[in-house]
Design a protein around this nucleic acid. Structure first.
Ligand SMILES: NC(=O)c1ccc[n+]([C@@H]2O[C@H](COP(=O)([O-])OP(=O)(O)OC[C@H]3O[C@@H](n4cnc5c(N)ncnc54)[C@H](O)[C@@H]3O)[C@@H](O)[C@H]2O)c1
Ligand SMILES: NC(=O)c1ccc[n+]([C@@H]2O[C@H](COP(=O)([O-])OP(=O)(O)OC[C@H]3O[C@@H](n4cnc5c(N)ncnc54)[C@H](O)[C@@H]3O)[C@@H](O)[C@H]2O)c1
Lengths: 219, 219
DNA sequence: GGTATATCGATAGAGTTATATCGATATACT
DNA sequence: AGTATATCGATATAACTCTATCGATATACC
């Protein structure tokens, strides 16, 4: 594949830029400044921006507004994507209440549970009708792991094609469905192991550095 | 570097194996079976296991018990790592109550907050004395983003060298400290974008597949 | 207007991670 | 005991991702 670079890692960084651009006042911004503010590689930022946006100007940088729009367009953040949460427990509640997703064009429009139903938490039985009526594409799975596979299948039957999976189960789904596993336990383990590596292997700098887990890179 | 393959991705998979091994009854298990159960590449699993464990036997596989022990040893999961949570809000509470971390040798031993103090949530003012007394190495950062940098610095002053960062801030920390960013918003964006890509680019199979975000791999 | 330079874009290369392939071997089965 | 084969381990290759470098250029400043 020639120069058609479209990667998961890129997709993770673009929202970070969006959040950053949202937070600044300047009407122009350079890739250099962005890279320093976010602890990312300078070349990497430039490459990312070049891919999604129009030209930048030497000595000036990019128009903040245009850059912002370009990234949002590229990521499909303009038309708000509607998502539902299934499993309104501790984690589901935290995610449901979090305001930061809307900045990225994602609205969590409804929560479902098998028992904790309230005004704004519907019974899981209503899943079908709700999803079909509202054309929901995304589901956030925060049910107990024992219920994970069965619940995922329910979601898929309702037309959901993207599942954010917080359970520890590796779901089995048809090929048209996208799964994003959010394995928090694994993630914490990575931190622990990386930290221990660093503490032990202080002989010379370990070559383990990656953009997201380590700090003080020499950009 | 020759064959000293020690990657972040590997560190993410090993806990998945641990969880799986914990859940099965069989006293022997083959890499083939593991790979099918977890939707991972067969060769990849074999390579992972070869790196951390003793030999497997043709037609039999590995001893479940030995494999389990080997991975835990490799990952440093034997001596329990103690972590604290700072910011006992919705997310902090969910993490604090989650039982699944102990399987991976991690104990969340204490929570701190600036206001919601209770019997088991200490005031942030006690952070110093607690961390030093108890030799805490890991901190989970779930304070509001406005407090993130300042709080991270507090943690570091208390001897913490690994921070699991749930805030949207890209922390600036000294080089001996490891940061694991858990950017949930970015992760959700990846799901949305990947799903949209797939829906649109159905001309021929997109070459975007990765082990963690997509399903129905042809292993 | 002329010069210095911050920033850009492009290319090449290095590093990391995953997959395909194949011969070796211990085990199951006849 | 002899044969078929599931599974292993190793090597080679492919795919993906990041970084270093450098010439081009629009802008700032004299
Ligand atoms: N809390 C964490 O920090 C954490 C960390 C990692 C993974 N997880 C995983 O996330 C999931 C949720 O965790 P949690 O802490 O919020 O658990 P929880 O028990 O607080 O919440 C689970 C919710 O799902 C509901 N539920 C049960 N069966 C259901 C069904 N069939 N349909 C719809 N709803 C149903 C329950 O009523 C409950 O409200 C679990 O799978 C857990 O393993 C949680
Ligand atoms: N909830 C989510 O789903 C979600 C998703 C992505 C990111 N985040 C991030 O995670 C963090 C926590 O989110 P939340 O939803 O739990 O928020 P929250 O408001 O429920 O919890 C924050 C807690 O931090 C405490 N706090 C405030 N200042 C403090 C300080 N200086 N020291 C110690 N404690 C302090 C508050 O009292 C509160 O209990 C935020 O930075 C948020 O942006 C949350």
């Amino acid at each position: 594949m020639i120069q058609n670079y479209n990667s998961k890692k890129l997709y993770e960084r673009l929202p970070i830029y969006v959040h950053f651009l949202n937070s600044i006042q300047e009407s122009n911004i350079s890739s250099t400044t962005i890279s320093k503010s976010l602890n990312l590689g300078e070349v990497q930022v430039r490459k990312d921006l070049a891919l999604v946006s129009g030209k930048g100007r030497p000595k000036i940088g990019y128009s903040t507004k245009n850059l912002f729009k370009a990234i949002k367009k590229y990521m499909g953040m303009n038309h708000a994507s509607k998502a539902i949460i299934v499993g309104f427990g501790k984690l589901g509640k935290a995610l449901y209440d979090y305001a930061g997703f809307s900045e990225l064009g994602i609205d969590i429009v409804q929560a479902f549970d098998i028992s904790n139903t309230t005004d704004f938490v519907k019974d899981i039985k209503e899943l079908d009708s709700y999803c079909l009526e509202n054309e929901i594409l995304f589901g956030i799975l925060t049910v107990p792991s024992t219920e994970a596979q069965a619940t995922a299948e329910k979601l898929i039957r309702c037309g959901i094609v993207g599942i954010w999976n917080f359970t520890s189960v590796r779901l089995n789904v048809p090929s048209h469905v996208v799964i994003q596993n959010e394995n928090l336990a694994a993630s914490l383990s990575v931190l622990v192991k990386s930290t221990l590596d660093k503490k032990v292997g202080n002989d010379y700098e370990k070559s383990n550095e990656t953009n997201d887990s380590y700090t003080s890179k020499k950009h």
